[in-house]
Amino acid sequence: MNREEALFRFLLQLGDTTLIMGHRVSEWCGHGPVLEEDIALANIALDLIGQTRLWLGLAGEVEGRGRDADALAYLRDAFEFRNLLIAERPNGDFGHTIMRQFLYDAWSALTLQRLQASSDRRIADIARKAGKEVAYHLERSADLCVRLADGTEESHDRMQAALNLLWPYTGEMFTPGDPERELAETGAVPNPTELRDEWLTITERLRTEGGLAMPDGGFAHLGGKSGRHSEHLGYVLAEMQWLQRAYPGAEW
């Protein structure tokens, strides 16, 4: 893999993850448990889709084959997507969605922090912009997780169940794929393994303030970064892409 190809693949990892995560979160629109949460979720989804435009836009530029962010989002099939598996997990209940958001936000905030120092100026610029947004998302998802975990017996149990279910999907965040191995040496991107300790410190709040038991299993579901996805991604893409597939080039 040459450098450009590695860069393209790495940008797909970021852009596909924000895209699929954004789509999942947007599924809550009109279904939130209370109006404020509904609005908050829609806003977060919007930020994630906005970040997707930046990452996939740059990916298309790097690839240099005339594909823009729309073409990459709407006209690729599941095996070409490079998102983290955690992003395509179904929403489950509200607690599960917020737990997924927190685990993801913590990783995303750390990743963007590192990318601000990327030797690639274009990546650093996007990371600065997105980093501001994600820092705000993280504040909210962290507080909500703690409140729900330290809430009623019912909410506590649901948050514990969500954490147990999602934990095996967090290892992938810290397992470098081919593009990261290639690029980390050039200083363009961080080695994700190095983010893990800080991530554990952030998520430790679930135990210290929320009273949850942190799972200790080291098993990690992998595959998203190399295009091997769970069955859920196909359904997401079917809903997201059908219009462009049925009416190619449609605009509104």
């Binding site: 609005i39 908050a40 977060i44 705000y136 909210r140």
Partner: peptide, 13 residues
């Protein structure tokens, strides 16, 4: 604070 997000991305409630 009611909610960290408001009617547009730039506002809180």
């Amino acid at each position: 604070l009611v909610s960290r997000f408001g009617s547009t991305p730039c506002k809180a409630q």
